[in-house]
């Protein structure tokens, strides 16, 4: 995966990776796989957060319904963003695989 380096952190929306990883990607060309791993970890965190909020609502604790719905929407949108990134990567990969040798 090291030969598929993506320079510049513009591939992912700013919300999908931490500022630290942006700087690293720009300076020393962090391997693309770890950028993707970070992004997936962030998205997973949002999904877990949504689950926790729903559990809180069901247990009748502090969280209110709209907080749960908003947490779900956040998770949904970030997941869709990740899927778009994945689709682009797959397109590029398939394009490379189609090269005649």
């Amino acid at each position: 995966m090291n030969d598929m380096l993506i320079r510049g952190g513009d591939l992912l929306p700013p919300s999908l990776h931490t500022p630290k990883s942006t700087v690293e990607v720009q300076n020393e060309a962090k391997p693309f796989s770890s950028v993707l791993k970070d992004a997936i970890a962030d998205i997973n965190k949002l999904q877990v957060n949504a689950d926790e909020t729903i559990a809180k609502v069901q247990l009748g604790n502090t969280a209110s319904i709209h907080e749960a719905v908003i947490a779900l929407e956040k998770a949904d949108i970030s997941f869709r963003a990740m899927m778009q990134v994945r689709n682009k990567i797959m397109d590029a990969y398939q394009e490379i695989m189609r090269i005649q040798v």
Binding site: P13, P14, S15, S64, H66, E67, I70, E73, K74, I77
Partner: peptide, 19 residues
Amino acid sequence: MDIFTSFKICSSGLTAQRA
């Protein structure tokens, strides 16, 4: 900028109206 900022503001507004 973050699209989630609008969500945060919406959330605070909804909480206020609920209160």
